[in-house]
């Protein structure tokens, strides 16, 4: 019997975990009613450093909040790109294609893209494009569920599909957006 004491102890760990899960359930039941464990308020606590019991998040019904810096796929912020090509140069898998627009009056290159493509099928979500962009025109979005049945070619996104309004950027990147605005107003004040 003594020879297997430690095995029993290990079983005890499992049992404790099992019981703790139900205790946690009960705790949230008294706080929030039936299924209280799965309310949005409970999630950060269950997932937090002091969380006990079962660890599972019931995805997709439940979702973990994404941190601001989360790197999903890149998107273009409306009317900011000047077609300088920095992102296309720095992109490690070379999945960005840009066609620079020409000014119809002068025939010279214009400061905007006429075409902008990103092949999300080979994008490695490294975030260099967003990091290097001098005009804050390309950012890493928080969209991740882009799976499709039609496969490869459907991941080649053009400018229309990539563009998001500034408000979206401000919403998912509040801190970064505030910093941007502060920098902008400081620059304007200087001038």
């Amino acid at each position: 019997m003594t020879a297997s004491l430690h095995v029993l102890k290990a079983f005890g760990v499992t049992i404790r975990r099992f019981v703790e899960s139900y205790l946690d359930d009960l705790k949230w039941f008294f706080k929030k009613g039936f299924g209280g464990r799965y309310t949005p308020e409970a999630l950060p606590i269950r997932q937090g450093v002091h969380g006990r019991g079962i660890f599972t998040v019931q995805y997709p019904a439940e979702r973990l909040p994404l941190p601001e810096r989360f790197r999903g796929f890149p998107f273009l912020v409306e009317n900011r790109c000047v077609a300088c090509g920095t992102c296309a140069r720095v992109c490690p898998p070379q999945c960005i294609w840009i066609v620079r627009a020409t000014d119809p009056d002068t025939g010279k290159p214009a400061r905007r893209p006429s075409e902008f493509h990103i092949d999300l099928g080979i994008c490695m979500q490294c975030g260099f494009c967003a990091e290097m962009c001098p005009f804050d025109a390309i950012k890493m979005g928080h969209e991740i569920e882009i799976a499709s049945f039609s496969g490869g070619a459907s991941f080649l996104w053009d400018r229309e599909k990539l563009t998001r309004p500034v408000a979206y950027h401000a919403q998912i990147h509040p801190t970064a957006y505030a910093e941007e605005q502060a920098k902008k107003s400081a620059k304007e004040a200087k001038e």
Partner: peptide
């Protein structure tokens, strides 16, 4: 060497596949 010449300023996407 990267960056490949075909990406900018007149890149039209060609998928490797």
């Amino acid at each position: 060497k990267k960056p490949f010449e075909s990406r900018f300023p007149d890149g039209h996407p060609v998928r490797a596949e």
